[in-house]
Design a protein around this nucleic acid. Structure first.
Lengths: 267, 267
DNA sequence: CACCAAACGTGGCCTATGCAACAAAATATT
DNA sequence: AATATTTTGTTGCATAGGCCACGTTTGGTG
């Protein structure tokens, strides 16, 4: 049994690994692939593809479906995946509520992140005609088919987050003045939102600077948590959209900073 | 018959519409839903759901799959899909051959299009460390996970092609000078490559201007075909990568313009 | 009220997919 | 080279899904 691992390590058996790599690649480009399709393409039997699917599904990399498989969680990958499976309901509710903040014809900057993707879905569903500027690929793709006009930021592509970052991104964002910006963050304390992924804090900060109305979408689980980099102060925010109202010192601080609290808990 | 339209318009029959709305909503949250699942949920027969799927698929809102459907709204491409299924082998070969043109450490501009996506796959497979500048989302996503560093262009997001276009894109591209550019096109005649999708010709033209080595990936099926907009002259190209050698006047013109012909037919 | 059209359900029939056990082929190990 | 081990292919069978035609229900219309 340990021998198997050794074989895998030195990559002597390329075929299988390569085929599975290709399957994952394909799923990044399409939402769904059929077993029969892949079997043809790789010139292997459908059983083999089925085994590949089973293996990949065990690793949580894909979601199986009758006749094929689809990307485990739509368009987003590694590090996003872990989060994506957690607290889906909360994020969905937050996203839906946040989407209602956007009025027709407005210009909105939307951050990258799993919660903002949910918001993009809700916004696509509402069909609000607006202009969206984003550094998130999933957000752009979700909104791109609908009523919204989407401007994608330039920058260094970060596969782990399916978003772009870097000086090009910042410089691009700085050119615009928008009605609204919607950001997420990995932590939220009395000191304000904070972010742990390298390069994202700057993007969020720039978005905050360029927008008249500034919203933070934040899961209550992140209350009190502090990420690596400081994004901004509480006073930089106009409102936060949460799944349940903060309490204690955080609540006091929010009130002091005159931040609106929009909770999906309440009407 | 006209009555049907009237009924649809004033929304007298809500049931069906509402069900389809829900299906779309569900697909915004998950990549794939099963017919049987939905049938249970709505308390209707599978046939009814199947009919809904057919209707939604006709409108291009979903992509059908055996056993269910997936959102057509993701990394995939409506108008690209048609092409995607045609001449896969040829495009794959062209892509593989073209990927070998890229040397380690080079900077390369890669165009959008189905053939260039194939090239990106091959390049990701080869693992050549290089810097890629592209306006194509699938290209960025494919290469983003590997050895390449990816710079994504800004611009207006065009869902149909999963790429960005517009003045922002052009302006961004103009800032760089690269070793190589690789473009595709929808037509190729003695007058040079041409493109039929609005906004793409300008991007390709700009890429050609900024690169030292210029390659065109072109399926032999497109020989002689002329797209709407002229992209450049034959003399603008250094080499073309094709699945089979052109003949006749096109060949003569290529020789006269000193364009290298790299065919996957030959060694 | 009678009528009509759209929407839905049912049953028959066929194909595609899933599953499991076994055989064959490819590759590693000694 | 001989032998394990892994990977892949094959076969048979059960099930799910797809499709077609027809009958029934629903809701609107004259």
């Amino acid at each position: 049994m340990p021998k198997a691992q050794i074989k895998d390590r030195d990559g002597a058996r390329l075929k299988k690994k390569e085929r599975r790599r290709q399957i994952l690649l394909e799923l990044k480009l399409r939402p769904h692939v059929r077993i029969s399709e892949l079997a043809q393409r790789f010139h292997v039997s459908t059983e083999t593809v089925r085994r590949d699917f089973d293996a990949l599904a065990d690793e949580g990399l894909i979601a199986r479906a009758h006749g094929g498989a689809s990307a485990s969680v739509r368009g987003h990958y590694p590090s996003l995946d872990e989060r994506a499976n957690a607290r889906i309901d909360e994020r969905e509710r937050i996203g839906r509520r946040a989407a209602r903040l956007v009025g027709e014809g407005e210009t909105v900057m939307i951050d990258s992140g799993s919660t903002t993707i949910e918001m993009a879905r809700a916004l696509a569903y509402l069909g609000t005609p607006c202009t969206v500027i984003t550094n998130s690929i999933p957000v752009a793709m979700t909104l791109g088919h609908g009523a919204a006009e989407v401007l994608l930021c330039p920058g260094e592509y970060l596969a782990a987050e399916s978003a772009v970052i870097g000086t090009e991104t910042l410089e691009f964002l700085s050119r615009f003045n928008v009605d609204r910006c919607v950001i997420g963050s990995s932590g939220f304390s009395i000191e304000g939102p904070s972010e742990s992924v390298r390069g994202f804090a700057a993007v969020k900060r720039t978005m905050l600077q360029r927008a008249e109305h500034r919203h933070l979408l934040i899961d209550s689980q992140k209350f009190g948590r502090k990420g690596l980099a400081h994004v901004g102060d509480l006073t930089d925010l106009q409102s936060i959209v949460v799944d349940s109202r903060p309490e204690g010192t955080l609540l006091s601080a929010l009130i002091a900073a005159r931040v609106d609290i929009i909770s999906t808990d309440e009407p």
